[in-house]
Design a protein around this nucleic acid. Sequence first.
RNA 1: GGGCUCGUAGCUCAGUCAGGCAGAGCGUCUGGCUUUUAACCAGACGGCCUAGGGUUCAAAUCCCUACGAGCCCGCCA
Length: 530
Amino acid sequence: MAEITHWADVIADEVLAKGRTHLVATGITPSGHIHIGNMREVVTADVAYRALIDKGEEAEFIYIADTYDPLRKVYPFLDESYAEHVGKPLSEIPCPCGEHDNYSEHFLEPFLTALDHLGIHPKVYRADELYKEGVYVEAIKQALVKKDEIAAILQKRSGKTPVETWNPFNPICKECGKVNATIVTGFDLDAETVDYDCSCGSSGTVSMKGGGKLTWRVDWPARWKALGVTVEPFGKDHASRGGSYDTGVAIAEEIFGYEAPHPIVYEWIMLGQKGAMSSSTGVVVSISDMLKVVPPEILRYLIIRTKPEKHIRFDPALPLLTLVDDFERLHSSDKATPYDKRIIELSHAAGLCHTDIPFKHMTTIHQVAAGDFDRIINIVKRAGYDVSNEKCIRELADNVGNWLEMYAPDNAKFSVQDDLPVGSASFTDFQRAFLTAFSDILDKSDELTGEDYHNLVYSSKEVGSELNKMIASAMDVTPESLEVNPKDLFKAIYVSVLGQPSGPKAGWFLSSLEKDFLAQRFREAAVYRP
RNA sequence: GGGCUCGUAGCUCAGUCAGGCAGAGCGUCUGGCUUUUAACCAGACGGCCUAGGGUUCAAAUCCCUACGAGCCCGCCA
């Protein structure tokens, strides 16, 4: 098999065949929580951008927040009072929490913070500012003049017949503030104004600078030309024939005289078994939530390892650990192929913080330590990991703690039981003898290390050891005829402490608990017969 | 009604552009680690590449058809 080229590098090559300097653009409407489905777009764009840069070419990367789009409806997460804002541009609607300048900033701010963590640093534009600055004025003029041609393109490509009053420009009503309720009645190219009637009953004149916006299908190609976009990823919803990319290409070429950007069509991210992620269905995992749970590299890796046109199945529960494992394995593997290395390289986010402690192992450590960081560090040290970078370990511990709380399935969780678990009732005589002897030895011992505990349990098998003798005596058999299966012993330990038949590696698990507590718990368990 | 994308091991996916022995990780099983764990190491098991047809010396890969999954257009980012 020939050398495998990562899809991002393939895209870079395709794009470079068309020209040397490039502007990679991406845009998302901040009408609700921006989820990891949306993140695919930005990561895809970032990776294409990085691939171009890595080839030594000139490239820029911009993100346009569609802040001038109207609010479509009162989303489930919004208060009923937002009904009056439906139809107004997002940037002109009050912030749901009152802490941000407006509605779109409320959702944009955490998203931009997340981008930073992901090592994605595009130049950020806000559509409302672009309109208000007059960036679109030329395009608006052309669109108004060539209205009928645009309508013809839309009709031909998408098969829809625009209504009589259709216009590529939607003025924002000065009375009611809505951008989706007006119809254009005239315009003045010199004064750069547009006249309108609004369904609220008013009429007026607005400036082409910020007085309204182009409809989506015209806005997009207008933006390509105004900003010089040459590469843009977009969801498959825009990609089919008659869709907005299709009409956008025609409008860009025939109306604005601009070659449409190179498309990168990406599939949806499916959430577990629940189907496509979508704000409107409420099947959503927000990016900020995910960043609480895993390092940013993992999220990049999720997207980078899969070609854009394939859907990604994402499950933040147990399968997430497999994803993390995959990444860590690849990261530290000495067998990594150039392709693997490229994936790792592209997955790099800002301020990589790497410890040699596997995420999965930390889920156990964290629970043994009941989340206490000092105890976590102690256990980590005892397990032989490098503890020089405490900050990284803390980040990992925080991630793991959040994962346990937010997504871990019950069978991945355990906790030291405050009271003797009822499962102790089913212990065999052998297990009871062991627990009694074990606690007797604990009583007269000093503090034990994990290895001490480990060796102590296994010493039960050795004829002549103290534990072996004590068990034999309690069972009333000779040490030689005593059959010992350590598995039963571990089970007895786990059941009496955790209430479940298995658990974390017993040695350091026991050593992380109070010796006196253990001695007492085992003694109780040994005689528990309800 | 029309169109787009996907279908490869139990799971998550590479490999398809550019045809050349069917791949990785996880899981499972077996063994190892001074003694069976939810750490670590090694090995094995595991496939009609969704199905059928075509092109070819050669097809997971290219072409046609069917089925399954998801989505788009037809009102609407």
